[in-house]
Design a protein around this nucleic acid. Structure first.
Ligand SMILES: [Zn+2]
Ligand SMILES: [Zn+2]
Ligand SMILES: [Zn+2]
Ligand SMILES: [Zn+2]
Lengths: 142, 142
DNA sequence: ATGATAATGATATCGCTTCTCATATTCATT
DNA sequence: AATGAATATGAGAAGCGATATCATTATCAT
């Protein structure tokens, strides 16, 4: 039950938190910004204050329920934290996001950090490019 | 001569542009934000408008004179574009930045992009952690 | 049901960046 | 060197994502 999920994280089971968690678990879209969530809830006639959404996202991240990502478009997007860490391939044109896990890269990162004596806490890797669909669309234009 | 550098890029050799380029080439600090540049120029009694600095940085980047980076602290930093591409290791505590080049990672990224059919345009990789100096400082406290 | 504790939401504010537009500078041409 | 068309500058406003404030409301152990 969702209630328990929240309580295990030390968070009261409030309506806003349940709505937001539900949205993520419904999973129509994988990576959601605060604004995305706000708009989706408005459509469902479930309006929450934007401030609440920002707060809840921060709390969910601290509780490791969700993971925060920054795809260089000026805002943060969040996704449910299920399964192992992954990185992202992002289309410059349409915003499509693919996910990947690459142990070679992960290992090399650890080696780099070690070489500099850093105790690694996190990393952020995005590959930007043009997705197949957008490639074929530009061909048609020219 | 710096004038020619700018003209080759199709940019008029104006005072603001020369001052900013000079700051980068002096190289006291490697990664500079717009605000950093503004403050440094104020100290040198060479005040420019902040708007101009932002504009010039955008132009320099478009002209490939400088490279833009985002270290997840909410603003962009720029560095002179000399030599090959590199990525960054960033200290969460003090902000120290080390640079590295890792062909294994670069190659794996190309493979990932290929696997998804993306035509790669850029990537962004930062490793975050605690630098050696900050590690020893936390030891002393506890 | 009650009340202490914590959460919400409207709004103000923040920090970084971009936009606007009147003024000033650059630079090719005389 | 002076002229003028084209371009750049800078002060301030505005944009935008995110955070802070604070009076009101909801939660949940008792
Ligand atoms: Zn695309
Ligand atoms: Zn993801
Ligand atoms: Zn440090
Ligand atoms: Zn660098």
């Amino acid at each position: 039950m969702k209630n328990d999920n929240l309580k295990k994280s030390g968070l009261k089971a409030t309506l806003p938190r349940l709505k937001i968690l539900e949205l993520f678990e419904k999973g129509e879209e994988h990576h959601l910004s605060a604004e995305d969530i706000y708009k989706k809830l408005v459509l469902l006639d479930e309006e929450l204050g934007l401030a609440t959404i920002y707060r809840v996202l921060t709390q969910f991240e601290a509780a490791n329920l969700i993971v925060r990502n920054h795809f260089e478009d000026g805002r943060f997007v969040y996704e449910l934290n299920k399964g192992p860490h992954h990185d992202h391939v992002v289309c410059d044109r349409c915003g499509k996001v693919d996910e990947f896990v690459d142990e070679t890269i992960e290992n090399s990162q650890r080696e780099v950090a070690e070489k500099f004596g850093f105790k690694i806490t996190a990393h952020s890797l995005q590959i930007f490019g043009i997705c197949p669909k957008c490639q074929s669309e530009s061909l048609q234009q020219s």
